[in-house]
Write a protein that binds this DNA or RNA. Structure first.
Lengths: 230, 230
DNA sequence: CAACAAGAGAGAGCGGTGCTCTCGCAAAGC
DNA sequence: GCTTTGCGAGAGCACCGCTCTCTCTTGTTG
């Protein structure tokens, strides 16, 4: 089942397209992504690109999936390096890795967590699996922490209960709905923190704030109910 | 100093352009905003638009400023309706108003808090004043609450102290740096919550979560150090 | 080995975009 | 009444996504 030269060449061109697309994403932003420019770069005429990619939107979908996976890889790798017992540290590592990856790949972050792209409407469900990796990692940490609901937790609606039941198979242990909700809040907060920094909401005002991310993460860890890292 | 018919007609056309631009923003998204389409709508030839707007980017800047102000108006109005003494309620009103406005004006929200637009690079400083209205409102509430630093607050760096001193004239009362940092975290979290909902990160997974915004807001209020609303 | 099928790339072309330039004409100011 | 100002029209440039047709190479099959 070895691949023919033709298949190999096709695969290589496809990889070149994706590689240059990422590069273009970084320099021009998601809206500047141009199939014609990619074709030019590869020494192809513009129409030839369509042998590889059905449309610009499909290319974007591929990029989104790749980015989600690169993002998930980076965060999971960082989390894995922590002692399993130090749950506060694992959360801190997740938060730090999220920001680090975002700062290193701002265009990709914008693609994943920024406003939906130009005319691009349906981030198809294929991407949701890849997109769930980081939130699921966070929830896994919470599940392992075996946190209990606290009196501060707001009451859960039946609808939210049902949705959690659907997701429960995704992570081990016993995640209480209240803790699940805390986790979503923490993940949202983290995204907000990173996005505001990256999208320039802090420029000219509180440029030093993002440097305090560790402190904010620890504070959010407290909201989660996790202990401070050792 | 009455305006000439010519000035009046110019002003009217300008208003028409902005009005239709907002409309197009809502239907097509920020990347779909087209000067030619606006010109067509107004019965003008495409080049005539440039008598009113120097470039597409400048039009976007105008839209951003208008949107920030509409956003600020909506949130300030909601906050004003609360009893001055009920600080928890005022924070809750701010959070609710932010989400309500965002849900009602998703394209504008994306313009303000989503990824920076296509090729559009410099959200010039004119917009920062308008863009600061809501965060400043939130910080004003915190200032009026006369909150004290708590042992849970992380230590503040000198740099963050300096930045706060620069901003201090913007709100009344005596806002401690630690409380200032809490406010920024809360605002970031709120933006993250709203953006994840609007940009579809919750679709197919936890669609019911945003409905719990009130609870999340109260939880964030606790992080802020504000009392529960009456 | 020869005939055939499949696929890659080229090229022209359609309708769309932002933006520039020039030209004519009408209104405003003197 | 004359001049200046400025609005709108029109043509045009370079770019975009995407489609269609054609050619030529490659790989498969009888």
């Amino acid at each position: 089942m070895t691949e023919t030269p033709r298949q190999r060449q096709h695969r290589q061109t496809m990889a070149d397209i994706l590689q240059y697309a990422h590069q273009q994403l970084a320099t021009e932003g998601s809206a500047g992504l141009s199939l014609r420019a990619i074709a030019r770069e590869l020494g192809l005429v513009s129409s030839a690109i369509y042998r590889y990619v059905p449309s610009r939107d499909d290319l974007l979908t591929l990029l989104i999936e790749e980015s989600y996976n690169a993002f998930g890889d980076a965060v999971e790798a960082a989390e894995t390096r922590c002692h399993r017992d130090d749950l506060g540290r694992r959360w801190l590592a997740i938060g730090r890795a999220v920001r680090r990856w975002a700062v290193a790949n701002p265009a990709e972050w914008a693609l994943l967590y920024g406003s939906p792209v130009p005319g691009y409407h349906a981030p198809p469900e294929r991407t949701t699996a890849a997109g769930s990796r980081v939130p699921i990692l966070l929830l896994t940490v919470l599940a392992e922490a075996n946190l209990e609901p606290s009196p501060d937790d707001p009451p859960m609606t039946a609808a939210l209960h049902r949705e959690l039941d659907r997701l429960r198979p995704a992570f081990p242990g016993d995640l209480k709905p209240e803790v699940f909700a805390r986790g979503l809040l923490a993940f949202s907060s983290l995204c907000g923190l990173v996005s505001l920094e990256l999208f320039g909401q802090f420029t000219n005002t509180v440029t030093q704030f993002p440097a305090h991310l560790d402190h904010q993460l620890i504070r959010l860890g407290a909201v989660l109910g996790l202990p401070d890292p050792d």
